[in-house]
Design a binder for these strands. Structure first.
Length: 277
DNA sequence: CTCCGTGCCTGTGAGC
DNA sequence: TGCTCACAGGCACGGA
């Protein structure tokens, strides 16, 4: 499940390996990622274009192509990008192959086919989804004062729903949200307006630090995530509550609980993260 | 505004 | 062993 740290790792590797390369061809093996767009048209518009830059907005990957085009890829649940410097046979989950110059290939693979591709002009960028996201928690502008302000604007939301809302903050998913709240000692079902300043400060700090730690350990390969070369991250070994229902809390030994909150399987320690309103 | 359910997909693993 | 079925959670959408 690629969240901000996983997408950041992929984008860093893409920057080093595909920027400056020309897309010499694009072949589709399934079409769900196009969401109704015409494959032929998509291929025609990317063929011959130079990848000038790759960047991340939240969990979106944006390729800047020559002739002022942006290609947006979202990996959703099980999407992967796999780079190879020489041609390889696609596996059964490969949905698209970008042929690059010097014989390199970039394969898009997706078991569940939820991933999406979009293509638009740089002029339309301000109307695109990635531009409508909340602030990136790793950017310099994301300071405590700002976090307190946006929290203040959503008093009735639960803190878990708030952190997962990409219009408030961009990049957190289910794994890093649960881990950040555990480290902050805050129950995921708490309403934002029930949090005191200390708790808000701890959440701010743990959100920032958990994401940086996730990047440092090359992401969470709990199940599906792989890096640009198919390698695994290491952060799954450092998860303290996610998918550890019934196991003892690493702080106090109490059994970790699992409940559905904000529509997701949610893990927390009932002792270290007490609920009250 | 906010919450909730549904749809999109397929692999995994528990239980019978 | 082999079958069924709930579950995994990203985002969009419609309705309460």
């Amino acid at each position: 499940l690629p969240e901000l740290p996983e997408v950041e790792c992929i984008v860093r590797d893409l920057k080093r390996n595909v920027t400056g390369r020309t897309i010499t061809g694009l072949k589709f093996l399934f079409y769900q990622m196009l969401q109704g767009a015409k494959a032929e048209e998509f291929s025609r518009q990317t063929r011959g274009k130079v990848i000038e830059d790759v960047e991340r907005k939240g969990k979106y990957i944006l390729f800047s192509l020559s002739s002022n085009q942006i290609m947006e890829i979202h990996l959703r649940m099980t999407g992967r990008l796999f780079f190879c410097s020489a041609p390889v046979n696609p596996d059964k989950y490969t949905g698209a192959i970008f042929y690059l110059d010097r014989n390199a290939e970039l394969h898009f693979q997706d078991i569940r086919k939820f991933g999406t591709f979009k293509l638009y002009g740089t002029r339309d960028l301000s109307n695109s989804k990635p531009f409508l996201l909340g602030p990136d928690p790793l950017c310099e502008a994301f300071v405590l004062e700002f976090f307190l302000e946006i929290l203040h604007n959503s008093p009735k939301k639960t803190i878990k729903a708030f952190l997962l809302d990409q219009r408030k903050i961009a990049g957190l998913g289910n794994i890093y949200t649960d881990e950040a709240l555990f480290r902050a000692g805050v129950h995921p079902g708490r309403r934002v307006n029930s949090l005191n300043l200390q708790e808000k400060k701890r959440i701010f700090y743990t959100v920032c630090s958990i994401l940086q730690e996730g990047i440092f350990f090359k992401g969470t390969s709990f199940s599906d995530y792989r890096d640009l070369w198919g390698g695994r991250g290491e952060f799954q070994e450092r998860l303290r509550v996610y998918r550890r229902g019934k196991e003892p809390c690493p702080n106090c030994g109490t059994a970790i609980e699992r409940k559905i909150l904000a529509g997701r399987g949610t893990y927390f320690c009932p002792c270290c993260q007490p609920f009250f309103s």
